[in-house]
Write a protein that binds this DNA or RNA. Structure first.
Lengths: 142, 142
DNA sequence: CCTATTCATTTGTACATACAAACATTGGGA
DNA sequence: TCCCAATGTTTGTATGTACAAATGAATAGG
């Protein structure tokens, strides 16, 4: 069945979560080649491009909660892709050489993802959708 | 920070998941009065309005996977809001009297949710957003 | 200088969801 | 008639995310 045919298709709750699940799935597929989830992949990219980045900054960039960021970093640390150094109350995240080597592959995943959804949704349309979603997200104070 | 200011704000992955998390949160708030998550609430509503409904139908309506539907039903069963009867390979879900009594409250939650997001996003705008999200979801074959 | 507050991060726990595999039932073809 | 494939559902397990509380560090007020 198509999403539009559901009795709740006109409800923002179902609309947004259905979209996000599908997008998550596509993204997961695109990041599979590097063995990371999209979130982990993006986090690692930021850590490579901004070595020493702090969790608080990642919270802002990835729009996730602090605890989630900690968990993401933990996993990348297990995989020896980043290391954490803690000094006082601040923590810095650095990519390991092994992590750094992945940059091209990571970028390719991101590009692949973008190309795939743009191809399916249309270039103009997907850009428009993203920007209106973004606007709405900012308007929504929960 | 605003979602639009993130370096990945133009990426559908972040856009859709950020929106969905915010919407989920608002919806969760709106359903708190009945002590159910939005998904549970909607599922119960369908079960009340279509007694004997089968999991496969709920899968379509709620756009969730079969296993998730089973889990949702399980929880409602624990709370004595629905009962399951299995005959052969098909299962029917019926609301209990206790479940049925909740219908007005459930509808109120749904309405409250709709009013709240419409008030924040604008009536026209939110409707337009929902419909374009829905269209895009259908276009996206993962 | 000490204490109270605030800040950055982590930890314990919980939840919604999914995938893969298992299970049971049904229907069709050899 | 019997087996095999398809169907509907459930189970085991894993993942991403969040909240609330805990920790540890910096800062400000008396």
């Amino acid at each position: 069945m198509k999403a539009c045919d559901s009795r709740y298709s006109q409800c923002l709750y179902f609309a947004s979560s259905a979209l996000s699940r599908k997008v998550e799935k596509l993204a997961t597929e695109c990041w599979a080649p590097v063995g990371l989830s999209p979130s982990h992949g993006y986090l690692l990219m930021i850590a490579i491009e901004e070595p020493g980045v702090q969790p608080s900054f990642l919270v802002e960039q990835l729009q996730l909660t602090p605890s989630t960021i900690t968990r993401l970093i933990e996993k990348l640390e297990e995989k020896k892709l980043v290391v954490r150094t803690t000094e006082g109350k601040i923590t810095n995240v650095y990519p390991t050489p092994k992590g750094k080597d992945m940059l091209p592959a990571l970028k390719a995943c991101g590009q692949d993802f973008h190309e795939r959804y743009a191809a399916q949704l249309g270039d103009r349309e997907s850009t428009a959708l993203v920007s209106s979603i973004c606007q709405m997200t900012d308007k929504l104070k929960v």
